[in-house]
């Protein structure tokens, strides 16, 4: 197993700084969704990880902790994530993305 980044929606959707989306070395790996935050009653949208693209560098953790001071991102073993976003289940809309969360082990395994 290996580590991937995981974003706490509650923290992220109350700040919505989007810094992590600008610092990940991998393209389309830290995505942003308006509905993932606002649908749950939070003020803003939230960033989330396409775990199939995450290389586990934890650069985003430093950005979130040290630059943004939000402490919303933690590294977690991929098999400990019950639900996560993967590229095949991410849809692009006009100014946001929408992700259908699923068990990453099953999706990546397929």
């Amino acid at each position: 197993m290996y580590l991937v980044a995981n974003i706490d929606v509650e923290i992220c959707a109350s700040k919505s700084c989007k810094l992590c989306t600008q610092y990940c070395p991998e393209a389309n790996t830290i995505q942003y969704s308006e509905t993932m935050g606002t649908d749950k009653g939070y003020k803003y949208g939230t960033a989330y990880i396409a775990v199939d693209r995450c290389k586990g560098c934890a650069l985003c953790v430093w950005v979130c902790d040290t630059m943004a001071k939000n402490n919303a991102i933690k590294m977690i073993m991929i098999d400990q994530l019950p639900l996560a976003a993967v590229t095949d289940n991410i849809r692009y809309e006009e100014k946001t993305t929408v992700a259908v969360l699923s068990n990453p082990m099953i999706v990546i395994g397929n």
Binding site: K18, Q22, I30, Q31, Y32, R53, K55, K95
Partner: peptide, 19 residues
């Protein structure tokens, strides 16, 4: 860059080192 994470980027997956 302020829209990053909301559109499909031109750069795809690549074999560069993590981080």
């Amino acid at each position: 860059v302020s829209q990053m994470g909301s559109f499909k980027e031109i750069l795809e997956e690549h074999p560069m080192c993590a981080g």
